[in-house]
Nucleic acid binder design. Structure first.
Lengths: 251, 251
DNA sequence: AACGGCGTTCTCTAGACCAGAACGCTTATT
DNA sequence: AATAAGCGTTCTGGTCTAGAGAACGCCGTT
């Protein structure tokens, strides 16, 4: 859905924010060139953003401030799913000694809400707020499996089915087959589909009315996860964590 | 510093974001009333923000999206101090079994970058991105003690010295005395100044040229921290963590 | 001294923002 | 059923402002 009467000035401000995020820290002239704007316009936008705390001037360069982290943190903190799931992610990580994550769906993409590292955890670059496509992770597939089929169609229409690795799901048929399996099995598996050599196991978290709120997972190097683990011990722990979250949400 | 030629349209967009953050989730008319704007204006701003992913429509209400978390997360991740300090905060929490935090200064306020909970950790509401005044925490004082005096003056001028608890620092003289002590001692103590019954111990992290980058701390209930701990075991652990960070930053 | 680059100031007008009215839709009320 | 009251959305015209461009002051370099 695109805005019918977009506010062009706001779009320029947002473009500036994006550019500043890419560059990290830079000067007025540089931004003006990047965005094909006059220097004065860029300057006015930057000082406006600065006045409201979203941008700061360090030396003679401008950069985004941590205000974005504050806003993001408040939004996350206000989500019931996050509040309830947070301690469970930590215990799951501690119990398995691996990396545990939670993910929610937003605008057809997965957003990592937090992660917790067990003592042997691999160091992935999944920070809170990171977006990922849904079809190539155990977390994402666990969510897709419990969305209405029409929504899934919409998402693959809009976002496509990018192949992250040769093992990634690449066609509609494959995906719907996988989602069926997940619904039967109760949990989703990612065996090197997002990252070669990484195995993940994800379970959905649903309300009592069946609506999916998000998913919880454990990720570990293939070398430490046998085929038996993938269908025995590990799913049990992840499902149990998902279950505790569901119980705490539904009271 | 206030913008000389503010972009009013951008200010309206930002006001909308703030309001949406306060409300959590709400409709066009409600926002229009809150901000004294026409419904059409609010609608145009919201759809523009939506198109760029900062706002989403859930049912027939609008709300901020996790895009802010994404942007904030990227900013944090790009900070060298965060990258280096992150593992040390975790080990400090594990070692002490209490709550460990890191904080940086921005625009005269402290911003929590992350926290790690040891197994006995108290559950404070310090989430990543939260802002706090500098003079009432061990972390903040550790930073203030190593900023140029002119900067400290500027900050208390601008932000004041709010008393969080009866024990909080309330006057300039008290503050400068405290900062002197901290410089001599090497670490800062907060004995119930931010929150009654909570004791914190914070140490600054500086570059080789003496510039302060941030601070690291441990917080624990007073019942678990004796007066001896406050000057013996605990500072040693916190200082050691700060030292490791400094070494890793300066190579 | 002169130059080239920067961030910032300032002015003026083309253009966009937005109040307000109107519309379709859903829900509450009669 | 019919009405009313509320919502979000569409659309337009008049008003205000966003921003190009020129000029300025301030570095560092030549």
């Amino acid at each position: 859905m695109n805005a019918k009467y977009p506010v062009r000035t706001t779009e320029k401000t947002l473009a500036l924010v994006e550019q500043l995020m890419k560059r990290g820290s830079c000067g007025v002239t540089e931004l003006a060139n990047d965005l094909d704007m006059g220097k004065s316009a860029v300057h006015n936008h930057l000082t406006t953003l600065q006045e409201h705390g979203y941008v700061q001037k360090v030396g003679d360069e401008y950069q985004l401030s941590l205000k974005f982290l504050e806003v993001g943190g408040r939004i996350r903190k206000s989500m019931e799913f996050y509040q309830v799931a947070e301690p469970e992610v930590k215990s799951l990580a501690a119990e398995t000694n691996e990396l545990a994550n939670i993910l929610v769906e937003e605008q057809g993409m997965g957003v990592y809400l937090m992660r917790a590292k067990g003592k042997d955890a691999v160091d992935l670059d999944t920070y809170a707020g990171l977006r990922t496509c849904l079809h190539a992770t155990a977390l994402g597939k666990a969510i897709l499996a419990h969305l209405p089929e029409s929504r899934v169609e919409e998402i693959i229409e809009h976002r496509g089915l990018e192949q992250k690795t040769p093992k990634s799901i690449g066609t509609r048929e494959e995906l719907f087959q996988a989602l069926n399996d997940i619904r039967e099995r109760g949990y989703a598996i990612d065996d090197g589909e997002r990252l070669e050599g990484l195995r993940c196991l994800g379970a959905p978290v649903k309300t009592s009315s069946g609506e999916v709120l998000g998913a919880i997972s454990v990720s570990a190097p293939a070398s430490r996860v046998s085929d038996e683990d993938l269908h025995g011990d590990l799913p049990e722990k992840v499902l149990s964590a998902a279950n505790v979250i569901e119980l705490n949400i539904n009271y």
